[in-house]
């Protein structure tokens, strides 16, 4: 199995493998732009949902539910909550957008992180949410409408080369990736090979370079993926530090996680690995996530 190649870099590897073979639980976050956490959770509990709240965060793991899919409620249709894996929420929290910030979400669709950032910004400031493909933009637009997000401008274009005209305070680059961290959610997906990792790594570097161009001096950027391969993670962050002269900051967020990979095959990432965050499925019963925080 391809995941075996990560045996030396993922701590407690047997538990990791076991978690990857289990179905991934659903998590939701309450859209506090429309309803309070207490009200929504109480309404869903009255309908038969059972939750575990992740302490200190607006994140609820669904323990059991009386419907096949967590989105099959009127409350979901009203935009009162968003089904989003806990691990996928964390990049937005690490970027920490505030009301008044100008924020770029470079690869935004379907909008889970865009809408969370809008929530953190209380629908103020501005988010420019970009994606390439029209069908993905439609999904993004539909989620923005359902959640009542009014501070966002949608743009379409290749984020490697697009000129966004504005300089941003903060940028989220949740990069297209091989998605190994969501395989437990989509177990039929094909595991990527080396060629795909290399292709994606180059794509991610090109995206990061254009993100850097649009970041204000002293502005911050979160680079994240939902994959495990260091070529798409530490390698790309090393490029930002070595070639773009970005400063790497330590990701501080109170969730169980591991530090980055110091060495992968013939590559060394000693200068970045202590700063980044890796979330593995066996730590929190979530998908996988890699997060780095960079400053221009």
């Amino acid at each position: 199995m391809k995941l075996e190649e990560y045996r030396d870099i993922i701590p407690n590897f047997e538990a990791f493998l076991e978690a990857m073979q289990k179905p991934q639980p659903y998590w939701i976050r309450v859209n506090t732009l429309k309803i309070s956490e207490e009200k929504l959770i109480s309404r869903l509990r009255a309908k038969g949902f059972r939750f575990d709240k992740f302490e200190g965060m607006n994140a609820y793991r669904i323990v059991s539910m009386p419907v096949k899919h967590p989105g099959a409620t009127i409350e979901h249709s009203m935009g009162y909550y968003y089904v989003q894996d806990l691990a996928s929420m964390i990049p937005a929290y690490v970027l920490n957008p505030r009301p008044g910030d100008k924020v770029l979400d470079m690869a935004a669709a379907p909008g889970s992180k865009t809408t969370l950032m809008a929530q953190l910004m209380e629908n103020r400031g501005t988010i420019v949410a970009n994606d390439t493909r029209p069908n993905r933009l439609r999904a993004l637009g539909s989620n923005i409408e359902r959640l009542g997000i009014t501070n966002t401008v949608l743009t379409k274009g290749d984020a490697r080369t697009k000129k966004f005209v504005i300089y941003f305070d903060k940028i989220l680059l949740d990069a297209p990736c091989s998605g190994e961290g969501v395989f437990r959610k989509n177990p039929k997906d094909k595991m990527p090979g080396l060629r795909e990792h290399l292709y994606l790594s180059n794509l991610q570097k090109a995206l990061l370079k254009n993100a850097w161009r649009h970041l204000k001096e002293r502005g911050t950027l979160v680079y994240s993926t939902c994959t495990f391969n260091p070529l798409e993670n530490e390698e790309v962050v090393s490029y930002a530090v070595d070639k773009l002269n970005m400063e790497i900051l330590k990701v501080e967020f109170d969730v169980p996680h591991c530090k980055g990979v110091a060495r992968w095959r013939d590559r060394e990432y000693e200068h970045v690995h202590e700063y980044v965050m890796r979330i593995y499925p066996h730590l929190l019963d979530t998908g996988g996530m890699f997060i780095a925080l960079l400053k221009k």
Binding site: I149, V153, L154, T155, F164
Partner: peptide, 22 residues
């Protein structure tokens, strides 16, 4: 379209597909 974002954004230069919500 209703938009609660920054007033100084030049949408024409940004080539916006969607601004806020309808």
């Amino acid at each position: 379209w209703a938009f609660s974002g920054a007033k100084d954004i030049d949408l024409s230069k940004l080539d916006a597909e969607v601004v806020g919500i309808r």
